[in-house]
């Protein structure tokens, strides 16, 4: 476990972490070093196939590493499984909205009691779904509503860590803007540690406190960029700093 006063606040610490699937092209991640403190909104960007999603799966415990050390902070955040939003909504088609939402609390690793229906309704309203939708099945929901439900499901067991794997890649621009703001607001309101994998540089600049840029596989860290984000989302979205961060990210990716 992580020791020392500085590391006490870290939820993840990667020391020379390598992930190798044994393919001829070599490892996916190579000697990656990073520390992720609690409460941070971190984005991971990089070209397609550079191992962003592999890194996220590694942090979620879904992917073992071949060498190096992945240290998890000994806090409540790490005892509850992290919330995970996949690229697709990944809902059970035979379950209603309410039953899908309840799923994480029914499974083995959950230490939280199944929330009451009113608590679940409150959560659904937080992500922009109404009480009228609770008896519907996923096939009756639009793509945006399915994504909102997926986000609510990731939060239902009150995780301290939220992992997002390009969750807004398949939605239209307007909905993406709404969902981005929703995710950032939920991060702030719930005091989460959020890690977002995205290929959208504007999204990374807009939402994050810090951005990690990965190079093409075997991925290593190219740059670790603090964003200096301000709390007011609308002001921040319109600010020159966001454009400046995008420029820096583009430069970092192009000079690889």
């Amino acid at each position: 476990m992580i020791s020392g006063s500085k590391s006490q606040r870290a939820v993840f610490e990667l020391r020379d972490v390598t992930v190798d699937f044994g393919s001829v092209s070599g490892p996916v991640l190579q000697c990656l070093n990073a520390e992720i403190p609690a409460g941070q909104f971190l984005s991971i960007v990089g070209p397609s196939g550079c191992g962003k999603s592999t890194l996220l799966r590694l942090l979620a415990g879904l992917q073992p590493h071949s060498s190096g050390q992945l240290l998890r902070g000994d806090s409540a955040d790490n005892r509850v499984p992290p919330g995970f939003v996949f690229q697709q909504p990944a809902l059970l088609p035979w379950r209603t909205v309410l039953a899908n939402l309840r799923l994480p609390c029914e499974l083995g690793g959950s230490r939280t009691a199944v929330p009451s229906e009113s608590e679940l309704l409150q959560l659904l309203q937080q992500v922009g779904l109404s009480g009228e939708d609770i008896r519907k099945r996923p096939a009756e929901l639009s793509g945006g509503m399915q994504m909102r439900l997926s986000l609510a499901r990731a939060l239902v067991h009150r995780p301290g860590i939220l992992l997002l794997d390009e969750p807004f890649a398949a939605v239209d621009d307007l909905l993406r803007m709404k969902l981005q703001e929703l995710v950032r607001n939920l991060h702030d309101a719930r005091g989460l540690t959020t890690i977002l994998v995205t290929h959208n540089l504007q999204e990374a600049a807009l939402l994050s406190d810090r951005i990690l840029v990965l190079q093409p596989a075997p991925a290593g860290l190219v740059c670790d960029l603090p964003s200096g984000r301000v709390a007011d989302h609308t002001t921040w979205r319109m600010s020159a700093e966001v454009i400046e961060i995008q420029h820096q990210l583009t430069k970092a990716l192009l000079t690889q």
Binding site: L62, F84, F86, L107, G108, G109
Partner: peptide, 14 residues
């Protein structure tokens, strides 16, 4: 669906 399998593994389903 592999994503659903991941979801179940993530929540340490038996």
């Amino acid at each position: 669906d592999p994503l659903l399998q991941d979801l179940f593994r993530l929540h340490r389903a038996t």
